[in-house]
Design a protein around this nucleic acid. Sequence first.
RNA 1: GUGGUUGUAGCUCAGCUGGUUAGAGCGCUGGAUUGUGGUUCCAGAGGUCGCCGGUUCGAACCCGGUCUUCCACCCCA
Length: 458
Amino acid sequence: MAKKPSIPKGTRDFSPTEIAKRDYIFEIVKKHFRTFGFQPIETPAFENSETLMGKYGDEGDRLIFKILNSGDFMSKVDDATYGSKNSSALTSKISEKALRYDLTVPFARYVVMHQNEIEFPFKRYQIQPVWRADRPQKGRFREFYQCDADVVGANSLLQEVELIQLYDAVFADLKLEGVTIKLNNRKILAGIAEIIGAQNNLVNFTVALDKLDKIGVEGVKKEMLAKGMSEQAIAKARPLFELSGTNAEQLNTLDNLLSDSGEGSKGVEELRFIINTIDDLGLQSAKLEIDVTLARGLNYYTGAILEVAAPEGVDMGSIGGGGRYDDLTGIFGLKDVSGVGISFGLDRIYLVLEELGLFPETLDKTLDVLCINFGEKESMAALKLVTLLRYKGVKADVYPSKAKMQKQMKYANNRNIPYVILIGENEMNHKTFVVKDMASGEQKSYGLAQIQDFIKTL
RNA sequence: GUGGUUGUAGCUCAGCUGGUUAGAGCGCUGGAUUGUGGUUCCAGAGGUCGCCGGUUCGAACCCGGUCUUCCACCCCA
């Protein structure tokens, strides 16, 4: 007997209703990408392994889906490698391709490969699925979409400012109120590490700091001690744990704390410029907040670090993130091209909009009109009418078979079709059609020549 | 990758310490209603209890494995 079919862990099917909602988000995101001057590109679902491996840290490498070579790949593995039971050594022999893990690294590869065709500064957007061999959780999938907008070849901090405006424009358009855009700068993190003498321990220091709101001051201290930082160093970093007040107050605190660090001071200066400029320009609905504990993407971010938090009260991790990377294309041999970009977490935004009931109701109206099928002759008349309606852009259909009226009406009802048209023997004889408004139950008769009058009511 | 959790009708879930033919609501099908859905009433169909194995006279229930769901780590959209 046929086994029950299934799909892999962490993947999903999308129903028509879900697609309508996802498209709603995609269209709004795309619209604003375009109004900010970004152009779309696409890259392959899979890349050469060497393009991806080593770009996301050890953890990232583990989460990359590898694709087996075609053909009799095991016969080409030498006995020593085979016998060693070393997964990574074996993997490189039997797998040369891997599924896209994010959109940023393939974009860097794209820029390097097409550098002679690209007009710099280049603003590109890209909306495609990515794959991670992660363990699924709520809002975490093994296949999910990223919507990225990046600018390469522009060093100006105005890019950061624009990207914050772009976030604000999209979330305002989605009617998602209360979103917080958190802003940090890697130079500040590096400066602090320098001041407290932990510059060689930057990653451990920031990873611990990142957990502040989760495990508290004591938890962070404990983790820093465990990672080899001294009591004095941690005491010096103490002002960070208690950083509070307005953005301006926090900037002043940081300025004092980092006055002895050239890099740190530069970070504060950059942060201040972005905050002040946004203050000047104003945001529609999002809040912009400094968050020095923000420490994502340290493998490549060199300047600004951005993260978007869902509105308070919604239990969802970040719904977007981004930052400045001065040398991403350097790994592919193109030096001194700065990039800065942001990403929208479509699947999470979907869950947040769903939870808050923010999808427009009109989304599941996939048909404006359904014609009841009364039989062979009548359905021909209905099809003629439907054809005219379709010419006018009205979403219309004829029920395909002469089923019971009850069944056809029920179908229209379940599909949320607002109008049902009836053309039976009577109507054919009088050259009319009857329109039933499904919400009110009212019926109105029109002459076949007066379609226009009906269309006006839609 | 580590630790835990979940799986019973199309959907949401009951099912007592292991004891006959596994239940409900919603949905579905038919009828009340041969030109009228959404409300109401009546009737009906639908289940290898995730899968494989074990214990037992007897397993949805206990044990082992596996897949899946969700959660906490890790990391991250």
